[in-house]
Design a protein around this nucleic acid. Structure first.
Length: 325
DNA sequence: AACGCGTTCAACCGCCCGAGT
DNA sequence: TACTCGGGCGGTTGAACGCGT
């Protein structure tokens, strides 16, 4: 006898989210903040399961999410972290700004696992047992690491909550898992950000209605991209006022959005570690993340840290073999 | 052009854990 | 202490797409 489902199956909609539903969800969260997901379907009028709402928010609608186009550095990090932490995607995601656990998980399953397999068969000797594809992580190891993570997160949280230091915008923009409280105490800057998201989403929807994409897949990806980009560009577009945009403006909007995406992309791929965009920096401050991530740490440093720590904890067994790549 | 097959990724499912009572 | 409930996590699924034949 398992637990009853989180919501009754009757009348619960499943499948891809429509832009309208996204808007409903975003505008609700803009007003109330994420958290209390159980109440979300009833309060918003969405015929969705609360879990579905949470998932949709954390994986797609949450501001600052970057999708696809994993950089080489990100790949390496994922591989390292996967090796160290195993399939603990949420933990891995906490080290990668702008990436969701689902995204990382998918990327691992579709790209990296195969890549590693290939590499493993290609450089059997040098790759050695360094990767979890061929090795189980000792339980003690990841438990210790988890402990460290928890302690660091706690420290970051207590620092963030200390009255001397006014909470930064970043904290409010954080991953929902840790921010249900911080979010509901919505700060002005943050609400501005979300207001801009919702406002822009509404504008995008108008454009979408006029020019419906061919397939539902394109449709959803377009809206997702635009949402993400809007969220990322947030404040820039926030002050656009309540004027009705012309269709030309709308299409321009789309173009500029994709431009923004590209520029973000290129800046990330080039200097992922050194100069993350302000949005990324904002996300870096996530309370849930260990301090190590609160500051932008150059990948080489992070890598070194990971390797050092792995070296300290295991001494034997982990070759830290990024050289293979 | 039509079909089959492989890939991708958004979303769902079920289990687990911690907080609250 | 035992129980309930909400939220989080990882595994899995299936529709859409791309590509080769």
């Amino acid at each position: 006898m398992g637990r009853p489902p989180c919501c009754d199956k009757e009348g619960v909609k499943k499948g891809p989210w429509t832009p309208e539903e996204d808007i409903m969800l975003v505008s609700y969260i803009q007003e109330h903040g994420p958290g209390n997901w159980r109440a979300v379907p009833t309060k918003t009028g969405l015929s969705r399961c609360s879990k579905s709402c949470r998932l949709r928010w954390t994986n797609y609608l949450r501001p600052g999410i970057k999708r696809g186009n994993f950089t080489e550095q990100e790949e390496k990090m994922i591989i390292h972290l996967q090796d160290l932490l195993g399939n603990r995607w949420a933990a891995i995601a906490s080290y990668l700004p702008q990436r969701t656990d689902n995204d990382i998980k998918n990327y691992w399953n579709t790209h990296l696992r195969k890549k590693l397999k290939k590499l493993h068969s290609g450089c059997e000797g040098s790759l050695g047992e360094g990767f979890s594809a061929s090795r189980e992580i000792p339980r003690g190891q990841w438990e210790r690491r988890l402990q460290t993570d928890i302690q660091m997160a706690k420290r970051a949280l207590s620092e963030a909550l200390s009255p001397e230091k006014p909470p930064s915008l970043s904290a409010s923009n954080s991953y929902p898992s840790d921010s249900s409280s911080s979010f509901s105490s919505t700060k002005p800057t943050q609400s501005l950000c979300y207001a801009s998201s919702a406002e822009n989403i509404a504008r995008m929807l108008k454009g979408w209605m006029k020019n419906p994409p061919k397939s539902s897949r394109t449709n959803s990806s377009v809206t997702q991209n635009s949402f993400n980009n809007l969220a990322a560009s947030g404040a820039d577009t926030a002050s656009s006022g309540a004027e009705e945009p012309s269709s030309a403006e709308l299409s321009e909007n789309f173009e500029s959005l994709f431009d923004f995406d590209q520029s973000l992309e290129s800046s990330n791929s080039d200097q992922f570690s050194q100069s993350l965009s302000p949005e990324a920096t904002v996300l870096q401050d996530d309370e849930s993340k260990p301090d190590i991530c609160a500051e932008i740490m150059p990948f080489s440093l992070l890598e070194k840290w990971l390797l050092d720590e792995a070296g300290c904890q295991e001494k034997v067994g982990y070759c830290g073999d990024a050289k293979c790549f």
